[in-house]
Design a protein around this nucleic acid. Structure first.
Length: 466
DNA sequence: AAAGCTGACAACCGCGGGATC
DNA sequence: AGATCCCGCGGTTGTCAGCTT
C-alpha cells in the first residue's frame, strides 16, 4: 500500500497546482504593509496604532501569540529502532542510487538513541573535527556524512526546534527572495534553525502557500500562469458562501474586473521586459540561475499600466504597488528610504558573500528606485502570508498606501519588519507559525470577518503619513 | 474499520568547491 | 597542475502520523 501511495504522491508532484480562487483575490489587492497586520488582525486598536512602530511585530500578534510556546518536537524516528535496512536499500536501489555506506557495511537510516548518545558524547569530548574518522573513533557504524548530518541537523545543542515564528517565516521569505534556495545562507540568519529545517519548512509550507497564492516561489513574482483566471470569472465559483463574500468585496469592484481581464491579456505578453528592466539585466533574468537572485521588483511589470493610480512603492524585498480606486496618496514622512532596519538588520558575521548579495540587491533596489520616473511598478500587491485561506484584500482607502511622488520610495520593511537590534523575535516563542494551534488559528483567523473586512482602525491617524 | 490520502520531516544522495597532497 | 580528500549544500526520498473517504 505504501508504495502505491508514494507512486500516487509522485504523480501529484507533477500535477499542476489546483488553482485556488481565494488566492487570486489575495494576489493583487492585498496590502502587504507587512503580512503581520493582515494575517493577524487584532481587534484591539491599540495594537494597530503603532503601524510604523518597530515594536509592532511583537505587539500586533500578541493576542494570537498566546498559544503554547514552542514545544520541542522529537524525531519520530528517534525511538524507533526497528528499521529495515534491506527495505531501505531496496528502495534506494529502485531509485537508481548507489548507496554510499552499504559497501562498507555501515548502517543507514534512522538513528537510535544509543547512536545519538555515542555521537554526542564523542563530540562533547573531542569536538567535531574530521567527520570521516569520527564515526570510527566514536564507535559508530555510520559514515561520516551521516554523522555530520545527524549532528548538524538534529543533535547540535544550539538548535532551536519547534515551530517557526511569524518573524522567522517573514525572514525566510525575504531572504529567499534574495538568496534563492541558499538554505544555508538563510539558516545563518535564523539562529537555531538548520538549513534542512528551513528547506523542509519552505517546501512543505511556504512554497505551497505561495503557489496557491499564484506567486512563483522562485521569483516571488506573481505567476499568472498559475492562476486560472477564467475559472475565477466562472459563475460556478459562486457556490461557496465564503467565496461569495470575497467576491462581494473584490470582484464587484469594476477595477478588479478590468484588472482580471488585463491580467489575462498581459499574461501572454510577459516576455518583454525592456520596459522595466535595464539593459544588462535582461540576460540575467533569462538565466534561471540568476533568476533566483532577482528581486521581483525588476520583473514582469507590464500589467500595471492597465491600472491607474498605481504608485511606486519599493520594498526592500517585495515591491508592492497598490492599485487604488482613488488616488488617495500617502506619503510617509520621516522615513529613511534606505533604513538600517531592512537587510542591514542582519548582523550576522557569516556568509559575507551573501551579505554582499543582499547589500548589492539593496543597492540595486535603490538604483532601480532612481528609475522610477520611468519605472513601472509591479502591479501586484500580495500577501505572502495569506496562507491557505481567504484573505480578501480591502479596497478601502485607509488600507492602501501610495506615494504622490513617483520618486518616493520607501520600505515598508523598514518599519514593519523585525525591529532592528532586536534579535529576540527570531527566537521568540511569542509568534508561532507552524503547529497545530497556529495553523488552525490562522485558518480561523482568515475566515473571520475581521480578516475579510480588515481595515485600519480609526485610531490610526493615516493623515499623519499624508 | 479499513483503505487511501496528505502533511511533515528526518535522512539520504549526488554534486561542487575548497583544501591538501 | 592534476589528483584526491573532505565537507557542505541543495534536491529528493522514505516513513510515519493523522486525517479523510
Amino acid at each position: 500500500m505504501r508504495h502505491v501511495a508514494n507512486a500516487q504522491r509522485d504523480n501529484r508532484r507533477t500535477a499542476p497546482n489546483q488553482f485556488d480562487f481565494c488566492f487570486f483575490l489575495n494576489l493583487h489587492f492585498l496590502p502587504i504593509y507587512t503580512t503581520k497586520q493582515l494575517v493577524r488582525p487584532t481587534t484591539d486598536p491599540t495594537l494597530i496604532t503603532p503601524f510604523f512602530s518597530s515594536s509592532l511585530s511583537s505587539q500586533i500578534f500578541s493576542p494570537l501569540s498566546l498559544s503554547s510556546p514552542s514545544t520541542i518536537t522529537h524525531s519520530p524516528y528517534l525511538n524507533k529502532v526497528s528499521f529495515s535496512l534491506a527495505t531501505h536499500n531496496l528502495a534506494a536501489s529502485a531509485m537508481g542510487r548507489a548507496p554510499c555506506c552499504e559497501k562498507n557495511g555501515l548502517k543507514k537510516g534512522p538513528w537510535t538513541t544509543e547512536e545519538d548518545q555515542k555521537l554526542v558524547d564523542y563530540i562533547h569530548k573531542h569536538g567535531c573535527g574530521n567527520w570521516r574518522t569520527l564515526p570510527k573513533n566514536a564507535g559508530l557504524q555510520r559514515c561520516g556524512k551521516s554523522c555530520r548530518l545527524r549532528w548538524t541537523n538534529y543533535l547540535r545543542p544550539d538548535i532551536k526546534r519547534g515551530r517557526f515564528s511569524f518573524e522567522e517565516e517573514e525572514t525566510i521569505i525575504q531572504l529567499h527572495s534574495i538568496l534563492g534556495n541558499k538554505w544555508s545562507a538563510i539558516a545563518s540568519r535564523l539562529p537555531g534553525r538548520t538549513d534542512n529545517e528551513i528547506k523542509n519548512y519552505w517546501n512543505t509550507h511556504i512554497r505551497k502557500r505561495l503557489l496557491r497564492m499564484g506567486i512563483d516561489p522562485v521569483t516571488h513574482s506573481p505567476r499568472l500562469d498559475l492562476l486560472d483566471i477564467s475559472s475565477i470569472l466562472n459563475a460556478s465559483f459562486y457556490g461557496s458562501s465564503q467565496m461569495l463574500l470575497g467576491m462581494q468585496q473584490s470582484m464587484v469592484n469594476p477595477e478588479l474586473l478590468r484588472l482580471a481581464s488585463s491580467l489575462v491579456s498581459s499574461s501572454q505578453q510577459h516576455k518583454d521586459l525592456d520596459m522595466c528592466v535595464p539593459k544588462g539585466q535582461h540576460n540575467q533574468l533569462c538565466d534561471p540561475q540568476v533568476q533566483n537572485h532577482v528581486p521581483h521588483f525588476v520583473q514582469f511589470q507590464d500589467p500595471v499600466q492597465e491600472v491607474p493610480a498605481c504608485s511606486t512603492t519599493v520594498f526592500s524585498t517585495a515591491c508592492v504597488s497598490l492599485p487604488l480606486s482613488q488616488p488617495q496618496l500617502v506619503e510617509p514622512h520621516n522615513v529613511d528610504p534606505y533604513p538600517s532596519s531592512t537587510f542591514t538588520d542582519f548582523t550576522y558575521q557569516q556568509h559575507s558573500h551573501d551579505d554582499q548579495i543582499i547589500s548589492d540587491w539593496h543597492k540595486d533596489g535603490v538604483a532601480l528606485s532612481t528609475l522610477t520616473d520611468d519605472y513601472v511598478p509591479q502591479l501586484s500587491s500580495y500577501n505572502y502570508y495569506s496562507s491557505d485561506d481567504l484573505m480578501y484584500p480591502p479596497l478601502s482607502e485607509p488600507s492602501t498606501f501610495h506615494s504622490n511622488n513617483s520618486n518616493q520610495n520607501f520600505s515598508f520593511a523598514s518599519v514593519l519588519s523585525t525591529p532592528p537590534s532586536s534579535p529576540t523575535p527570531l527566537n521568540s516563542n511569542s509568534t508561532i507559525i507552524n503547529g497545530n494551534n497556529t495553523e488552525d488559528e490562522r485558518d480561523q483567523s482568515y475566515d473571520s470577518s475581521s480578516m475579510l473586512k480588515f481595515e485600519i482602525p480609526d485610531i490610526l491617524d493615516v493623515n499623519e503619513f499624508m
